[in-house]
């Protein structure tokens, strides 16, 4: 296959960037999108150019590192796959492919196609966990969990934190990502204990980081490589509302020394 690539090039976070055109040839339809970019980079390196930087690691669709906005869609044209799982057979010989980084205020560009997604870490740090310590927990089978709930929690928990939902959203909202974590934990008895606190803290953190509001366009669900459902966003809204309306006020009790 022969292709024309139009790629966003930006030397560093502070530098100006622009779209630059490249030609690649002799690409096998069976190779992956990244193997195609590897080929381009090898060519650039050998000709004294500057290879294109892009984030990638596992190359099997699970780590969530890869993050390319291809022809107007995060992770490219196929549904339910990450960029690293995309294969060249999804394109036609002679195609022009536009490749851009995720765009969001909360995800600044670091270099070329690489963005800084540490905002997601901050959101999880705001409460995306169950506060249990190593040691001192009950036997795993002490609390039965209905299989349906557990399966639903699992579905929400398969989020890989790639940020495609933010990239796809016209408002750069992170609701699907957070909705998935809130749902995962709220669906399990283990996570319910601190559910009210969790959802409020995570949402507050999300707002602070400059993500947009949810307009329910559902572009996130359409582009999420793991098919995370927007019903998780509704569940988060529900959790949030009931927390705001009904949760006990937190009392700060001074520990007497």
């Amino acid at each position: 296959m022969n292709l024309t690539l139009k790629i966003w090039r930006q030397k560093s976070a502070t530098a100006e960037g622009q779209m630059v055109s490249y030609d690649v040839s002799g690409i096998s339809a069976d190779s992956s999108f990244f193997e195609m970019l590897d080929t381009l980079n090898q060519k650039l390196i050998m000709s004294g150019g500057d290879p294109v930087s892009f984030d990638h690691d596992c190359r099997e669709g699970i780590c969530g590192t890869c993050s390319l906005y291809i022809n107007g869609r995060p992770h490219g044209p196929e549904k339910g796959v990450t960029t690293c799982q995309l294969h060249m057979r999804s394109f036609k010989d002679g195609d022009t492919i536009h490749i851009e980084p995720w765009r969001a205020r909360a995800f600044p560009v670091i270099s070329d196609l690489i963005v800084d997604r540490s905002a997601f870490d901050k959101i999880i740090q705001a409460g995306g966990y169950v506060s249990v310590n190593t040691g001192g927990v009950p036997d795993a089978n002490t609390i039965p969990v209905p299989k349906e709930k557990s399966d639903e929690a699992f579905d929400a928990a398969t989020c890989i934190g790639c940020g495609a939902c933010v990239a796809a959203c016209s408002n750069a909202a992170a609701m699907l990502f957070i909705g998935a974590k809130v749902s995962h934990l709220a669906l399990l008895p283990q996570g319910q204990v601190e559910a009210a606190k969790r959802v409020q803290q995570m949402v507050a953190c999300m707002d602070e980081l400059g993500f947009g509001n949810c307009s329910n366009t559902y572009a996130c669900e359409a582009e999420c490589p793991k098919g995370i459902s927007v019903s998780n966003i509704a569940r988060m809204n529900r959790e949030f509302l009931s927390a705001k309306l009904f949760a006990e006020k937190e009392k700060i009790i001074q520990d007497s020394l």
Binding site: G135, P138, A140, P144, K147, S150, D151, A153, F154, Q190
Partner: peptide
């Protein structure tokens, strides 16, 4: 065994039977 106990407490959604047990 302690690992499994801890992970379940952390909210790891291990596969379950219909009865709700692992």
């Amino acid at each position: 065994n302690q690992i499994i106990d801890l992970c379940v407490a952390q909210g790891v959604p291990f596969a379950r039977e219909y009865g709700g047990l692992l």
